[in-house]
């Protein structure tokens, strides 16, 4: 074991860590923003409304994130229309491609989680909202969505961890995230075990942090489900 090279490159790891945190946080925020309308559309009873969201969710959940990233990063350049469009400066850069891929992917998973949670809303709650004279929009805002978010929380916590783990793929398409940093350290010093296990250690710490944070949120959001203290 030779961790001297790791210590010498600690700043590279920390910069990589920051890129990972950035990518994951941005992807999660964009993904969540897309997921709510996606879930609403997917749970519509009208076929022409729910068809596209269902197809989107099915395709993104049914294929590997790696293939999605490759499709965006290596694939889009195949089309002259894309290369000549005003978006090309953005789409030719690995960072934005990774972010786009991550955001769409987590949107699909989160959308399905929220859709599932909404489908389990007790009928009585919706009837009660209607009986109080709430409009459908207000019932969604005050009753259906808050209770669905609450139910979706544990599954969403897992999704956040999956997103963190999936973000390591950014390292493959030349981004110097945590995994990318490990690749660089390995190629400079040839310490494959030490370099990758160090990245693994940082990922593990972040996973624990996420688990802990969700426990805190759950304690708050699920306060009404806690057994009463004597």
């Amino acid at each position: 074991m030779d961790f001297a090279a790791i210590i010498g490159n600690l700043d590279l790891y920390l910069r990589g860590l920051w890129v990972t945190v950035q990518l994951v946080a941005l992807a999660l925020v964009i993904g969540l923003a897309l997921a709510v309308p996606l879930a609403l559309a997917a749970s519509s009873r009208r076929g022409w409304v729910n068809f596209l969201p269902h197809a989107f969710i099915y395709c993104f959940r049914g294929t590997p994130l790696l293939v999605q990233i490759y499709l965006i990063y290596y694939g889009l350049g195949q089309f002259a229309a894309v290369r000549e469009s005003f978006l090309w400066p953005v789409l030719s850069e690995a960072y934005w491609c990774a972010l786009l891929g991550f955001a769409l992917n987590t949107a699909a998973y989160t959308g399905e989680i929220i859709r599932g949670a909404m489908a389990q809303t007790p009928a009585g709650e919706i009837e009660a909202a209607r009986a109080c004279g709430m409009s459908p929009a207000m019932a969604y805002r005050r009753v259906i969505l808050p209770s669905a978010f609450r139910r979706a929380l544990p599954a969403y916590g897992n999704e956040v961890i999956f997103m963190l783990h999936g973000s390591a793929l950014a390292g493959i398409i030349t981004i110097v995230d945590l995994f990318g940093a490990a690749r660089i350290v390995n190629s400079r010093h040839f310490v494959p075990f030490e370099s990758y296990i160090t990245a693994g250690f940082f990922y593990l710490c972040m996973t624990f942090l996420i688990v802990w944070a969700f426990k805190l949120i759950e304690r708050r959001w699920h306060a009404h489900l806690k057994p009463l203290r004597a």
Partner: peptide, 22 residues
């Protein structure tokens, strides 16, 4: 806990590249 806390890609490189050396 360990396995579920570390990305699969990282584990794979640890085992493939690191395992080789070890």
């Amino acid at each position: 806990t360990l396995i579920r806390g570390i990305p699969d890609l990282v584990l794979m490189t640890v085992i493939f590249f690191g395992g080789q050396v070890l």
